[in-house]
Structures are given as C-alpha cells and as structure tokens.
Design a protein around this nucleic acid. Structure first.
Lengths: 356, 356
DNA sequence: GTGAAAGCGCTAACAT
DNA sequence: ATGTTAGCGCTTTCAC
C-alpha cells in the first residue's frame, strides 16, 4: 500500500490540509518548520501523490488525447515525439489512438477520450473536416497538425510546402538548370497543390516555367519511375527533376539509371520529405526536410495555450523545413558518397556501455 | 457541463445506485423496465461516465505505461501498435514515455507512471537489467518486449532470432550455395549472438560452416559495405552473404555492385529485419521479417494476464518472423522487379474518398 | 499559519 | 429490485 496524504499528515502530526499545501506546492503560506517536517516524512514514507484523485478534485487531468491516423505512417512518430517532448515540459501526458483514416473511428476515439476527461486533443493527419465536427463531439480545446486535405482553417499547424518547393526548385535553378521538370502528387492533397505552386512560382519568376515538364504520380516509387520514363522520352528532356516526394524521386532515379543515364551527371534529382532511406540510397537524395518534430512541438504549444485560455483560437501556423543537400542534385560532385547513420538507433557509445 | 450519474438518476427518477448499476453494466439485477428508462435518459442527456472518478473508486485505471527508448527507433512504432491494438480489446489504454536508453530517465518514468496509478508497465527495448529493479521502483505487473541485451529472464517477449537466422541460411543453402558468408553485428547484442548461432548451426548440420567467412559489422550500412569488400577480396569469395541486418545487406549490395559484380547474379544476399526500404531498394532485399506487431500484441496479452492475477510471472516467449523472398537472393530470377507500396500510408481508395 | 469539513463522480456494501 | 450511505485521495473554502 503506497502512503497517502492522510498517512503523511498523521506521521508528520499536521492536518491533511497542511500536508496537501506543502506537497502540492500551494501558494498558501506554511511555516518553514512545518514545511520541512512534512517534506521529510513524505520522503521517508515514499509518498507519491495520487494524480487520479487530484484530477477528480481539480477537474483537470494534465492528459491530452493524440488522435493519429496510423502510428506506422512515416511522419507520425516524429510528430508524436515533438508533441510528447513539449507536453512533458508542462507535466502533461499524451494518450494516442489510431483512427485509421476513418471518421467514424475518429468520432469514437473522441468519445473515449472524453470519458477519460482529457484536457484537449491533437489531431495528427486527421481527416475530420472542421472544428465544428469536433465541438459537436466534445467541447474541448483541440488543434490539427499536418492536415492532409484542407490546411488553412483555424487551429492548424502545417508544413510550409510552398516555401519548401521554392527552395528545392531554386536550388536546381541556381545549379544552372533551365529545363526543370516536376513530378506532382495525386489530386486533392495539400502537398500536391502547394508543392506545385512553389515550383511554378519559382520558375515563373525566372521565366523558365514549362507546363510540358509537369508529370503526375501517386506518391509511390513506381509512379515516379513511370513519370521519369515519360520525361526521358521527351524530344527535349529535362536536365533536372524535382520529384514531389522522396519515394517518387527514388523511382525516377531507377528509371534514369535503367535508361543508361546517370544521376546527377545527366539528370539531377531533388526530392521532398527527407525520408530516412534518402540518406542511404545511391545516390543519396537531396531533399526538403519535413519539419515533423517542430510541427509536433508547435501543436502541443498551441494546444497548451488554448487549454490555459490564453486565446480562443490560433491562426494557422506554417512550419518550414530546410534543404538537405546530398548526392542526387550534383551540388557536391559525383565522386564521393557517404552513408548516413540510421536515425532513432541506439547510439554506439551507449550501446557499448549497456552490453554486459 | 457534461451530465453526471446524479443528473441521470434524478432525471430517470431512480437512485444513483440503480443508475450506476445499469450504466456500469453491473451484475446486480435491475428490473428491465427501469433499466430501459435509465438507458434512455442517459442517452438523452448525453451521459458519458467519468472514468477518472471510477478509477479512483475501483483503484484500477485501465491504463498501462509503455516505456520506450525512442519512438523514432524503427521497430518501436509497430511494437507499440501491436500493444495498443491488443489493449484496446480489453478497454485499456497505453501512455508512452521516451526514456532515451537512460536507466535514470527510465526510473523517473516509472515514478511518473506510478503517480498516475497505471495498472502495469511494458518496457520496449528497455535497458533495465532485471525485474528486481522495477519492483524496487514500483510494485507493478510488467513485461519486457524486445530486450536488446539480455533476453532470457522472466516476463520477456523477444523475437526468435536463432530460428530466423536458420531460415535465412537454409534458404541460401537450398538455393545451392555452399560458401555462405555472414556479416555479424557488434558484440553484446542478443541479435548478434542468436543470429550467429542460427547461421552456424544451420551450416554445421550441412557440413559447410567456415569460420573464415564470418565478418563483423556494427549494424550500419557503411559497415556492411566494408565487410563485403573484405569478403570479395578473399581468394575464394563466397557466392552468398547472409547479412545480420538489412542495413548491412544494403551496404554489401553496394560493395558488390561497385566491384562490378551483380546481386544476385554473382553473389546472393539475404538480410534480416524486413525494414521498409528493403522493399523498394534495387535489388529488393530478401530478408527475415521482425515480428514487431506480434511481439507487441503478445506482450500486451501477457501483461493483461499478469494484471488479472492469472499468473505470477510468464516464461520467456519467443516470436517467429518469416522469410520474405524478394530479388536479392536470386530465388525469383534476376529479370523482373517490382516496387512495393509504402507501409503505413493512406490507402489509395480512402485517399480519393477524402479529397474535397 | 493551521485545521475541519465539504465534495469531485463514482462503486459497493449494507439495508430494506 | 431499489435505495442509503460510506469513502476512494485529494484540494480548497471557511473558520479560527
């Protein structure tokens, strides 16, 4: 049986109220002498406050719900990590539920969280359309992070893909390329619309935009492979390709190599997302990093402000990722290539310490 | 203000006890007529039980702690997914904490969880040495899943790497190879010890084990690359390489290709882990799947049994992964190659439905 | 500066 | 079959 506040109060010969005041760090004044005595007895008894009881009393659980579509989806773990890290600072906790891109399941998840009296909700890559839908289900503070289909509503934290696409395109242009193709994503996605817009804007400013160099894929490797084959078959093929994501960039690289050309020698490639494999594929893919952890942190930060009542709603927040230069763009020459260490793995030094 | 049990009881004109009995699904008998009336009023008032209050009362939170070393580590999201899926069936929830391979942080995490009155703990890839350490910190049911450094203690769920390694080696042997090399992992890891043992046992049985064909890497791409270069330089090089993990298999493939040889034509490769990139690298890597979700489910299952008091401790559980045949082993011939779709991504059909 | 007591929402004896 | 009541561990008024 763990010691309760009553136990500590009894042992320290004070009232339970006083014990609570010192152990919960209340602003209410307590004589220094008693304070120390209570602290000491609590220590001796190994007292740990019962947060469930406290939550019931103060009507605040310091717990927020994180509704993710699928924890296996590539950007979600880093987003969740960012959320957790920021939450921890304020003593909050997140409980995550997988909703599998099903609005029905998402609605049920909200109910479950409501029963657990969570203080707020973060939707990660949610397919729910509006805040109204959420308020109908649970009148709780909430934010959306990395919405895939409609970005510009309130309480949203999304990547600045227009900016990223301009960065990628500009990099290629500055390397001297004038025929820069684009492999776009499937219709309807924010990423498709904004990456295309950034690409087009950057080239239009330079007077070298050519709609004939825009192909469409579906985000998967195979589609990038096929799109690049079409691009290669042009009478006047591009000298560089900006692929809408790293998966399609990889497919494009395969198509180019298969045609007997070299990357970046004959055609330079830039991808988007900075997926882990981009660092150890050959050639390693130059790309735009998706600022997942930053988005996670920003969303937690925003939710905490909403919970504290500092504001009614937050304006959409755009988070920028930076250009990651590797081999496929040609900026580093073609000779040398390095392998990046795996992300998220146990650091070598640590590993050695832990071995028996 | 959400409706409480008292509100429902009042509105349905029954005592709060009766309301509780029907709404909490108690075994205590209630007249069908009253039951229906309570249910109806609860529905009308939008009643949702307050699980925090219930937890305090019944001293059971239906919450378990999941202490992971780093949610960004590749096997952890699928393990967590498996845990969550199994937990959900019994109405439990998991809250995850990142401990960063630091026993100190891990100890603090246990305290935090204890304050939240969790019913049990699952340690994922934990570096804590024994159950004793945990019991000192919190006298709670707990299991370890995918221990990296000491597998065979009680309450552990680990992959059967000895079995997997035999599977991989046997596959190569059955393809006709007799000089099969092995790129081992760094010292001290369970994976290193058990994969080596499986490799050696399978070859010894066939009388073709040659210690001169065993190289060592550190799990990263670069080390596989280097190890394969040493193997190639042998007077009598192997015709097949079993790499201790997919990362090193990839490095080996690069070294072989760079030497002007072909995979699998000149040297066949089999990896281990079935990492996502193994499915869309060229050649796609034949490998042994790490049964992460199964381990997660099994660990949740085991913990639930511990919580229910069905048993005092569980014997170590070994989970097997199967051989995934792709291009690098040569079993499918060299011509055709396909790209696998990304795991964890939004299914195409769903994506189309969700587009505005 | 300290203590007594009410009560958060719920469950489970113990009546009736 | 239904109701009354105590109490889980805590915070917080309100008195002194």
């Amino acid at each position: 049986m763990p010691a309760s506040l009553t136990d500590v109060a009894k042992a320290a010969d004070v009232s339970i109220a006083t014990a609570s005041r010192v152990l919960a760090g209340s602003a209410h004044p307590v004589a220094e002498e008693t304070r120390l005595r209570v602290l000491k007895t609590a220590e001796e008894l190994g007292y740990q406050p019962n947060l469930v009881a406290r939550s019931l009393r103060i009507d605040h659980t310091y717990t927020i719900g994180i509704i993710v579509e699928n924890i296996l989806s590539p950007f979600i773990p880093p987003i969740v990590r960012g959320i957790q890290d920021r939450l921890e600072v304020d003593g909050y906790f997140g409980i995550t539920i997988n909703a599998g891109w099903d609005p029905q399941v998402e609605a049920e998840a909200i109910q479950t969280l409501r029963k657990r009296q969570i203080d707020g909700i973060i939707f990660v890559e949610s397919c729910l359309r509006s805040s109204d839908e959420v308020f109908e289900l649970a009148d709780k503070p909430h934010v959306f992070v990395h919405r895939l289909f409609n970005s510009l509503s309130l309480n949203s934290i999304v990547p600045d893909e227009h900016y990223g696409a301009r960065l990628a395109t500009r990099h290629l242009a500055q390397l001297g390329h004038r025929r820069i193709a684009f492999i776009n994503g499937p219709e309807g996605w924010n990423a498709t619309i904004n990456r295309m817009a950034g690409y087009q804007e950057e080239l239009a400013i330079r007077g070298i935009f050519d709609p004939g160099l825009v192909e469409r894929g579906d985000w998967e490797v195979q589609s990038g492979y096929l799109a690049a084959q079409r691009l290669i078959a042009l009478k006047d093929p591009p000298t560089a390709i900006f692929a809408g994501n790293d998966l399609m960039a990889l497919g494009a690289i395969y198509a180019i190599q298969e045609a007997g050309w070299r990357v970046p020698g004959d055609i330079a490639i830039v991808g988007y997302d900075d997926r882990e494999f981009s660092g150890f594929v050959r050639p390693a893919i130059t790309t735009i990093r998706m600022p997942c952890e930053e988005m996670g942190r920003a969303s937690a930060e925003a939710l905490l402000r909403l919970i504290d009542g500092e504001t009614e709603a937050i304006e959409p927040i755009l988070i920028r990722g930076e250009l990651v230069v590797r081999q496929s763009c040609g900026a580093r020459g073609e000779g040398e290539w390095e392998f990046e260490p795996e992300r998220g793995s146990l650091p070598r030094r640590r590993a050695r310490e832990l071995c028996p």
